[in-house]
Nucleic acid binder design. Structure first.
Lengths: 358, 358
DNA sequence: TTGAAAGCGCTAACAT
DNA sequence: ATGTTAGCGCTTTCAA
């Protein structure tokens, strides 16, 4: 019950040794007599001692904490929308945060990061950075030594945060190759390969009148998925593919599909650059009386939770987000400990998951 | 670029004053000559000084950090399922974490907490605690002074974490009244009132053959929503209401609805204790050719993102999760600063949101 | 209003 | 193998 106030000194006295010895036992440094080690451990147990993180951090210059930053380039207004909790200045609903956390993708990122950190008794500090002010908070946080480094997941192209972190000499690892290029480590997916898998699957299903709903084409992920799809069709003899650009949201997927159908009412297969948009596509088709997959086959991307929720369950290109997120955490961990110095890229392979939409 | 190594001393020298004065300026303590204040600020600006958090924390005994804990009672195995990232001991996919973050509810909690914290330059440390070992990590984390307190969101009845925190004298605030009772502050919803709103709405729509899919009945939220619904019907003269218990998941909602239909094929209205289950209910009805709302009216609960995603969009009882989460953060903040000492409850009012499912 | 100085609790270099 | 000791960078009395 006696919060804190219990120090190494107290444990040392209890065990009849010096502070240094207790410290060694706690940190698992060798050169400690096993008998003494046990005595110290007993004393720690008896007193209920817990080492003070701030004091340790002050001398080791490590916090054993990392920041997980969800970053966006746009929305520069910086104001908090919505109502407040009754006190001035407390924006309770952050539109950016709300939108971000409604996307099942981030749940998977968090799950992967936590999966790596937790066995190491580390925990991520969650930061949202959609404005210049918010990005400043992130760099300040790290400069103060509140965390040893940052994991950055950008939602937009041209996010300035990775470059800012590198400029300050702060350890960082990104999810997806940053645009514009920055000398920083990142994990990414072989998006092009994913597009190829989708194309080959649709062709194998006998579909010939194909089209695609792309992601935002300013994002490498959007471009590459399209390029891979196109390239595979080209090799199979198809020179032209109708495309409509979406924004990775359900609504934009439905809108893009409507656009495609307007110009090509006889489509029999669509590759949609993420599952959320594919869900919108399926809904639109159903509203118009179109059967999936009988009339139109739909291939999604990500294998997120909506791929299962969607009616029919989606055939999709799986992105191993949890594994990628865990690898991102591992890279950062290595950078922080100096075990890795060069910016490193880690590219994961996508995998086709066949369900009922094809 | 010269990471850290820049101290108060350096700034003091640069400004031609003492460390103490610089410290005062930084912390906004009065009794500083405005002229000197400006000189110091300029020096800080020029040098790019950032105060060291560990050093400050060591003397103030505050971290200005709080933990956001997603806690569950079950799953005591403690093992990490799924594959690993190639190194032994790294469970990358945490089943509990994955399930939790797939629920849109937690995105709203995070959004609300961040909304309160961020204007104060604070950020939450995210912790998942589904096993005894994980709970131990949480209490250790706080005992080490890594965070000033914890926000606890329990997913199960009988979560032992709140009691453990109180026993250790660690500041904590819960989302929802803990079971069994614990002397701790919490925010909650007037669930009973929510059930009443649903009942009255269905009656007003002229529905008379009603039933309900409840949440887990070991959870106060599950019990109370049911009680409110039942009570309102009772007052309107209906003595008996068929019920089927669900688990707050889409699948369990569909299963419960199938059970209800088996016994009562002529139902014309259902109150479903959360939106996720209501989605399952709507899907099941559609699969069986039932029209929503023409044949069966469906009222959900939460007003989460799936209420909009669902076909048709759900009439639902809104739970102001973001506001509740922000209030939870505010309560903890006040407890930590000693501005509040007594365990406090803050009950929010639900609100009916009418859409197309009724 | 400002400065000098005493720690906060810990680790790590050095001495033994 | 263990103990002694010098800080880590900051806040905060206490004097001036």
């Amino acid at each position: 019950m006696q919060r804190q106030s219990l120090t190494l000194e107290d444990v040392a006295r209890e065990a009849g040794v010096s502070r240094a010895t207790v410290s060694r036992v706690i940190n698992g440094v060798r050169n400690v007599d096993p008998a003494i080690r046990d005595v110290v451990r007993a004393a720690i147990e008896r007193t209920g001692y817990a080492p003070n993180r701030a004091a340790r951090s002050l001398v080791t210059r490590r916090t054993e904490t990392i920041a997980l930053v969800i970053s966006g380039a746009g929305e520069e207004d910086g104001s908090d929308g919505g109502s407040d909790d009754g006190r001035p200045g407390d924006g309770v609903r952050n539109a950016f945060a709300a939108r971000v956390f409604a996307d099942p993708f981030f749940g998977r990122v968090i799950s992967g990061v936590v999966g790596f950190l937790r066995p190491r008794s580390m925990h991520p500090v969650l930061m949202v950075a959609e404005s210049a002010a918010a990005r400043k908070q992130v760099t300040e946080f790290l400069r103060q030594g509140s965390a040893d480094g940052a994991l950055v997941v950008s939602t937009h192209a041209g996010d300035p945060l990775p470059a800012q972190l590198v400029a300050e000499g702060l350890p960082a690892v990104c999810f997806a190759r940053p645009t514009p290029p920055v000398p920083v480590s990142y994990v990414d997916l072989a998006h092009r390969e994913g597009g190829r898998l989708a194309a080959e699957h649709l062709l194998a299903r006998g579909r010939r009148r194909l089209a695609t709903v792309t992601g935002p084409l300013d994002l490498p992920a959007g471009q590459e998925r399209l390029a891979g799809f196109r390239e595979a069709l080209e090799r199979a003899g198809t020179a032209y593919v109708p495309i409509a650009e979406g924004a990775f949201t359900r609504e934009s997927g439905a809108a893009a599909m409507a656009e495609l159908l307007a110009g090509h009412p006889d489509l029999d297969g669509v590759f949609v650059a993420n599952d959320l948009m594919a869900q919108g596509v399926c809904e639109l088709l159903r509203e118009r009386g179109g059967q999936v997959p009988q009339e139109v086959a739909v291939v999604g991307f990500d294998d997120s939770s909506v791929a299962l929720t969607c009616r029919p369950p989606l055939t999709t290109v799986r992105q191993p987000v949890e594994e990628m997120a865990a690898a991102m955490a591992r890279l950062l961990h290595e950078h922080v400990r100096g075990e890795r110095t060069e910016p490193t890229s880690l590219i994961f392979e996508p995998e086709l998951v066949v369900r009922d939409s094809t």
